[in-house]
Amino acid sequence: MDETGKELVLALYDYQEKSPREVTMKKGDILTLLNSTNKDWWKVEVKITVNGKTYERQGFVPAAYVKKL
């Protein structure tokens, strides 16, 4: 869990989004888990830094590609 009590997951593999509802992740990324009720796709939040500014983006990743921490 992070400092706000949200559950975290670890990306076990790289994943490139294939639709606007998904998010890209790299092996080793730590993501915030938002919803894991679907056994195949989990909703996560990723933080992306571009030119020194951090953005948060929500989307789905394959559940088999992440592990709860």
Rank of each mutant, 00 (worst) to 15 (best):
T49C: 11
A63L: 01
V23Y: 03
L31C: 07
A11Q: 01
S36Q: 14
R57G: 03
S19M: 06
T49L: 12
M1N: 15
D40E: 13
Y65R: 05
G5C: 11
R57Y: 05
N51Q: 10
R21Q: 14
D2L: 11
L31P: 01
T54P: 09
M1R: 05
Q58A: 11
I48C: 10
L69E: 04
S19G: 14
W42F: 06
D2F: 04
V9G: 12
L34V: 14
T54H: 11
D2T: 12
A11G: 03
A11V: 07
T32A: 12
M25H: 00
Q16C: 10
E17I: 05
L34Q: 03
K6S: 10
Y15I: 01
L8Y: 13
P20Y: 08
E7S: 12
R57P: 01
V61C: 04
K27I: 05
R21F: 12
F60R: 03
G59H: 01
K53F: 10
K6Y: 11
Q16F: 15
A63H: 03
T24V: 02
N35D: 15
V46F: 06
N51E: 14
T49D: 11
N35A: 10
Y13M: 13
Y65C: 09
V66R: 00
D29Q: 09
T37H: 10
V50K: 10
E3F: 05
Q58V: 10
M25L: 11
I48V: 14
A63S: 13
M1L: 12
A63V: 06
D14I: 01
A64D: 10
K53P: 04
G5N: 14
K68I: 12
E17W: 05
T54R: 08
K27G: 05
E22A: 05
Q58G: 06
T24G: 07
R21S: 15
K39P: 15
N38H: 14
D29V: 03
Y65L: 15
E7T: 12
S36G: 11
Y65V: 05
E7C: 10
L33S: 01
S19R: 07
P62Y: 02
G5S: 13
L12F: 03
I30N: 02
A64N: 15
L33G: 00
K68P: 09
A64C: 10
D40A: 10
D29H: 05
Y13G: 05
Y65D: 03
G52L: 06
K43T: 07
K67F: 08
T49M: 13
T24M: 03
E3S: 15
M25Y: 01
A11T: 03
T49K: 13
V50W: 09
D2P: 15
T4M: 14
N51F: 10
M25T: 03
M1E: 14
S19C: 07
S36I: 05
F60K: 02
Y15F: 07
G5T: 09
D40W: 15
Y55F: 13
L69Y: 08
S19A: 07
F60M: 09
I30H: 04
V66F: 04
G5Q: 14
V46E: 04
K67C: 11
V9M: 04
I30R: 05
K39D: 13
E45M: 14
V23Q: 02
K6G: 10
P62W: 02
S36T: 09
T24W: 03
L12G: 01
S36D: 14
T32R: 14
S36L: 04
K47F: 12
E17C: 10
N51C: 09
K18N: 10
E7A: 08
T24L: 02
K43I: 12
A64R: 09
G59M: 04
N35Y: 05
Y65E: 03
V50D: 09
R21P: 04
K53L: 15
N51R: 05
G28E: 02
K27S: 07
I48T: 14
A63Q: 06
K67M: 11
L33T: 01
E22N: 05
M1T: 15
K43C: 10
R21L: 11
Y55K: 08
T4W: 10
A11Y: 02
D29C: 04
M1P: 15
P20C: 07
V44C: 04
M25W: 01
D29I: 03
S19W: 06
L31K: 00
L69K: 04
T54A: 11
Y55W: 13
T49A: 11
D29A: 05
K43A: 08
L33N: 01
Q16V: 14
L10Q: 13
N38S: 11
K68W: 04
T32W: 12
L34A: 04
I30L: 10
K26W: 09
V9N: 00
K43F: 14
R21K: 14
Q16K: 11
E3T: 15
T54D: 12
T32S: 07
V44A: 01
E17D: 04
K53E: 12
D29R: 02
V50H: 14
Y65Q: 05
G28C: 06
S36N: 11
I48D: 07
N38K: 07
D2Q: 14
K18C: 08
K18I: 06
K6T: 10
K67Y: 10
V23C: 07
W41A: 02
I48Y: 15
L69N: 04
T32F: 10
N35E: 11
P20Q: 10
E56L: 15
N38I: 05
N38P: 03
T37W: 08
F60I: 07
V9Y: 07
Y13F: 14
P62G: 01
W41H: 03
I48G: 06
N38G: 10
N35R: 06
V50R: 09
Y55S: 10
T54L: 12
E56Q: 14
L8R: 11
N35M: 09
T32D: 05
G5D: 07
E7R: 12
L8C: 08
K26A: 10
L31D: 00
T24S: 15
E3N: 15
Q58F: 06
V61G: 00
T54Q: 13
L31F: 08
V46C: 07
K26R: 09
Y65N: 05
L33P: 00
M1A: 15
V66M: 05
K26Y: 11
K53N: 13
E22C: 05
E7P: 10
M25D: 00
Y55L: 11
T4F: 13
T32Y: 10
V9W: 04
N51P: 06
W41N: 02
K67W: 08
V46H: 10
G28P: 00
W42M: 04
K67I: 13
E45R: 09
F60A: 02
N35P: 03
Y55I: 15
A11I: 02
K68C: 07
W41Y: 08
I30K: 05
L69A: 05
V44Q: 00
L12E: 04
Y65W: 06
N38A: 07
P20L: 08
W41E: 04
Q58E: 11
L8Q: 13
F60C: 08
T32N: 07
K43R: 11
Y13N: 09
L69M: 10
G5L: 12
L33D: 00
W41Q: 02
K27P: 03
T4S: 12
E45P: 00
V46G: 07
N35K: 07
E3P: 13
L8F: 09
E17R: 15
Q58I: 13
T37R: 06
L34C: 06
V46W: 06
W42K: 01
L12Y: 03
V44H: 00
R57L: 05
Y55H: 11
G59S: 01
L10K: 08
M25P: 00
D40H: 13
